[in-house]
C-alpha cells in the first residue's frame, strides 16, 4: 500500500522568509479517513504544523481550508472526495493573510460579519413570553441561520478577494438576509439603507463559488438575490 503524498503550505513568520510547500508521506492504512485525520497524522510527524480544529464534526467552522484547490472543512471531507492520483495539496483559505501554516487571519471576514449588525433588532417591548412566529415565517430562516462562519464561501469569492474591505461577502450577506427575513426583526429599512451602496451587496457578480463550496449546503447567492429584490422594492 503506497503512502498518501501530502503537500502542505508552511510558513512560520519567525523562521521563514517566505512560505513554501512541504511534502509529507502519510500512511492511512488504506482507510478513507477525513482530511483532518491526515493533518493530525502529519502533526505527529512534525508538531510545529499549525492548523485550527475544534468540533471535528462540521459544526464549529474551525478547519476551513483549501484541499486540492477547493475550499471545505477538513473534518467532514473524506480523502475519497478530494484525493486525485494519491496526491493531496493543502493550502490555507485563499485571500486572507496567513498567520502561520494553515492558520489565516480572519479579522476582515469577521469585520464584514459585524458590519451587517448580525443580531435581532426589535423596537417593541418584549412580551412576557416568547414573540410568536408562525412555522411558515420560521421556515424562511432555514438555509440561513445554519451558517457556521467557516469562511469557505467568502474566501472562494473573487469579489471578496478584490474588495475585502468593502464587499460584505457571501457569509455576511447570508446573515444579513437571515435578519431581513426574520418576521421578528423591525430594522429592515435601516439594514437595507446600509447595503445600497455600490460595494456591500452589488459587488456580487453571481459567480456562485460560494454555493459550490459551502460545507453546509447553503446558498448565499440566492440570499443576495433576495436582498437585491428587497432593495429594489424599497426604493421604487
Amino acid at each position: 500500500m503506497s503512502n498518501l503524498q501530502v503537500s502542505v503550505y508552511r510558513y512560520n513568520p519567525e523562521t521563514d522568509s517566505a512560505p513554501y510547500m512541504q511534502e509529507f508521506q502519510v500512511d492511512t492504512k488504506g482507510r478513507d479517513v477525513m482530511v483532518l485525520d491526515v493533518l493530525h497524522m502529519m502533526k505527529e510527524q512534525d508538531s510545529g504544523l499549525a492548523f485550527r480544529r475544534s468540533c471535528r464534526e462540521g459544526v464549529c467552522g474551525s478547519d476551513g481550508m483549501n484541499m486540492n484547490g477547493k475550499n471545505g472543512l477538513a473534518c467532514i471531507t473524506p480523502l475519497s472526495d478530494v484525493v486525485k492520483n494519491n496526491k493531496l495539496v493543502l493550502r490555507p483559505l485563499p485571500g486572507l493573510p496567513v498567520i502561520r501554516d494553515m492558520v489565516v487571519d480572519m479579522g476582515l471576514f469577521y469585520k464584514q460579519y459585524e458590519r451587517i449588525q448580525p443580531y435581532l433588532q426589535n423596537d417593541t417591548p418584549p412580551p412576557a413570553i416568547e414573540r410568536l412566529q408562525s412555522p411558515e415565517e420560521r421556515d424562511k430562516l432555514d438555509g440561513l441561520y445554519e451558517c457556521i462562519l467557516c469562511a469557505c464561501c467568502s474566501t472562494s469569492c473573487p469579489s471578496f478577494w478584490w474588495n475585502p474591505e468593502k464587499f460584505v461577502g457571501p457569509a455576511g450577506l447570508l446573515q444579513s438576509y437571515r435578519f431581513l427575513a426574520d418576521s421578528r426583526d423591525t430594522a429592515t429599512s435601516e439594514r437595507l439603507s446600509n447595503l445600497e451602496d455600490p460595494f456591500s451587496v452589488f459587488r456580487c457578480r453571481g459567480i456562485m463559488n460560494c454555493v459550490a463550496v459551502c460545507p453546509k449546503g447553503l446558498n448565499p447567492t440566492r440570499a443576495i438575490g433576495k436582498i437585491r429584490e428587497m432593495l429594489l422594492a424599497d426604493a421604487t
Binding site: 439603507s193 447595503l195 451602496d197 456591500s200 452589488f202
Partner: peptide, 18 residues
C-alpha cells in the same frame, strides 16, 4: 455603508438597475 463618489448613480442599486 460604503460611500463612493465615482460610481454612476452613487448607489449600487441604481447602478445595478441601470
Amino acid at each position: 455603508m460604503v460611500t463612493n463618489i465615482t460610481s454612476f448613480g452613487r448607489s449600487g442599486l441604481s447602478d445595478w438597475l441601470m
